[in-house]
Design a protein around this nucleic acid. Structure first.
Length: 110
DNA sequence: TACGTGACGGCGA
DNA sequence: GTCGCCGCCACGT
């Protein structure tokens, strides 16, 4: 037996991150740094992107509501995920202009 | 084991 | 408001 402290421990940071993203209401967006801070990760914004990239299939996490601190989409413009995110944001009623969102207007403030 | 990369942030100009 | 540099942590090779 290996009493290794992991896998069987409490929810990992990824779980915590997904939980925070789940709390983002429709029609609003949050930045990676904001999600990281709310998840108790401090400024590990990069970890948030990594956690979202590890999302399993069949999840219900609104990953598309997470943008950069500048309001720009984190994906390259030629990426399929980019268009997907834009489309999903518009379905939420968020105005996306040139792959960018007005953070001062749609930023989620809990 | 060590190096490089990455769905980023903050600060200064 | 934008542009560039550095810093942080985890993962893959």
């Amino acid at each position: 037996m290996q009493p290794d402290r992991d896998t069987a421990t409490e929810p990992t940071r990824e779980q915590k991150i997904w939980q925070v993203v789940l709390a983002i209401p429709a029609g609003m967006v949050a930045s990676y740094g904001q999600v990281a801070a709310m998840a108790g990760l401090g400024r590990q914004a990069r970890f948030v992107g990594r956690a979202l990239g590890k999302l399993p299939a069949g999840h219900s996490v609104p990953w598309f509501r997470v943008l950069r601190s500048t309001g720009q989409i984190a994906f390259p413009p030629d990426s399929p995920a980019y268009e997907r995110q834009v489309d999903l944001l518009r379905q939420d009623g968020v105005e996306v202009v040139n792959g960018r969102v007005s953070m001062s207007r749609y930023r989620w403030t809990p």
